[in-house]
Design a protein around this nucleic acid. Structure first.
Length: 419
DNA sequence: TATCCACAGGAAATCAGGGTGT
DNA sequence: ACACCCTGATTTCCTGTGGATA
């Protein structure tokens, strides 16, 4: 924002607000396009809802529902369906009101933290510190707390995104603990609902746990383009004012989302952004143009945000690749190059240590997994076997993201010396 | 066709930094 | 102060390998 001498902004705030407030309205309920929103209708999830309702209904009578597993690709409505059912269950007029606790394994990613999180959510007075105690002690405390606070009722534990823990050490341990929890409770009973974004996440799971999660798991299949369209139509009725959508908008959102991402969250986000763009431009209606622009923004923002949140070492690895491609565009980049440049760059940044080849290899794999770079194993005969690495996205975008990182921006023009 | 480069990538150990109760 | 816990990041050690070259 530009300033002139009188300390007045050239950007006139008052005027902006005035225009904004009297400008055309687009949204009726913006939140309805957030992925956390639970609508009254969930199109194309009838079988799953029925399944879950049947499995959980006995909680209303005070019986313990069996543990079960929901699985399906990201954005297929697993979480929202569970939330939907939990709301329905809460609305029932029964003596026993089940309680719910929702745990995202992305955030609470170890046995200790999950147990502590459950404890801290329930307990008002004493909190368990984020680290320090023995896990067994938390376990015992939690049992005491659950039994005393939740007499004879049912406690649902929802473990979402369990797949992110799949290759961690404590993976089996977490589920074991939670299953054990139920066995050790006297009054209160818990029921475990596990949600996985990966289809075959149970491959390295203890067979005992698998059997505990029941035989039939609930599958959430991908939405087809038509189904996705229904969802968008349903949500847009809630979120937008009448008549603001031109008729091509939803089909386009659906197609873009199906092609690029294949799941519902992105389609909803696309729609929301398109609406916001229209709003900002003070347009009365949302058109295809807004959707296209939103799509571009969405993609760029996602990548920039992702890079921004990467660990510093991973950012330095990206920087290393960037520097090689910038100053030596013809060069085919192999793992060893990245190791060399990384070592040099690390020396330039205070407090950053050099890494071993092994560690660098892991970072390279991570980055290629999310699609920022591509890394292809190739044998070069007598010249060894290595990975050929290149950017999978435009360099400009990488640059834009790297400039924003304080500790790196000074080195963006460092020219590495090649042998 | 045997060789050998420059790594790939699994498993286990180690380190550092957060914390605890005694 | 001390022994110990939990965790994430990294190192150490390791075995394996595709294919151009000698």
């Amino acid at each position: 924002m530009l300033k002139n001498h009188n300390n007045n902004y050239k950007f006139n705030i008052d005027k902006f607000y005035k225009n904004y407030l009297k400008g055309p309205r687009i949204f009726k309920n913006r939140d309805a396009l957030e992925s956390s929103y639970v609508p009254d209708k969930l199109p194309h999830r009838d079988t799953q809802i029925k399944d879950i309702i049947e499995k959980t209904a006995c909680a209303l009578l005070g019986d313990t529902p069996q543990n079960f597993l929901c699985y399906g690709m990201i954005g297929t409505g697993k979480t929202v369906t569970i939330r939907y059912v939990s709301q329905k269950l809460a609305q029932e007029n029964s003596k026993i009101k089940p309680s719910w606790i929702y745990i995202n394994c992305n955030i609470f990613s170890t046995p200790y933290r999950i147990l502590a999180h459950i404890y801290n959510t329930i307990s008002r007075q004493d909190k368990i510190p984020p680290t320090g105690l023995l896990k067994d002690i938390i376990f015992k405390n939690l049992i005491r707390l659950l039994d005393s606070k939740f007499g004879n009722s049912i406690f649902f534990l929802v473990l979402d995104e369990i797949n992110v823990l799949a290759d961690k050490k404590g993976f089996n341990e977490i589920l074991c603990d939670l299953i054990k929890l139920n066995e050790n409770l006297d009054n209160c009973k818990t029921s475990l609902i596990v949600i996985s974004n990966k289809l075959k996440f149970w491959e390295n799971l203890d067979p005992r746990i698998i059997s505990n999660l029941g035989e039939e798991h609930i599958l959430f299949p991908l939405y087809s383009t038509d189904q996705l369209k229904d969802i968008l139509i349903e949500r847009s009725k809630i979120s937008f004012l009448k008549g603001v959508l031109t008729k091509e908008v939803i089909p386009l959102c659906t197609v873009l989302a199906t092609m690029k991402y294949g799941y519902a969250q992105k389609a909803l986000e696309l729609l929301r952004r398109a609406g916001e763009l229209a709003e900002r431009a003070q347009n009365k209606i949302i058109t295809v143009k807004h959707v296209r622009k939103a799509q571009k923004e969405l993609e760029n923002d996602y990548i920039k945000e992702y890079i921004k949140n990467l660990p510093l070492q991973a950012q330095i690895i990206l920087l290393s690749i960037y520097l090689i491609s910038k100053f030596n565009p013809e060069h085919t980049i192999i793992s060893g190059d990245i190791y060399n440049i990384h070592s040099k760059v690390a020396e330039l940044i205070p407090g950053v240590r050099q890494l071993t080849r092994r560690r660098i290899a892991d970072y390279i794999n991570d980055l290629s997994l999310v699609g920022i770079i591509s890394a292809e194993v190739k044998s070069m005969g007598h010249y060894g076997r290595t990975k050929i690495i290149k950017f999978d996205i435009r360099m400009k975008l990488i640059e834009k993201a790297l400039v924003k990182i304080d500790r790196i921006q000074g080195i963006l023009n460092y020219k590495p010396i090649f042998l």
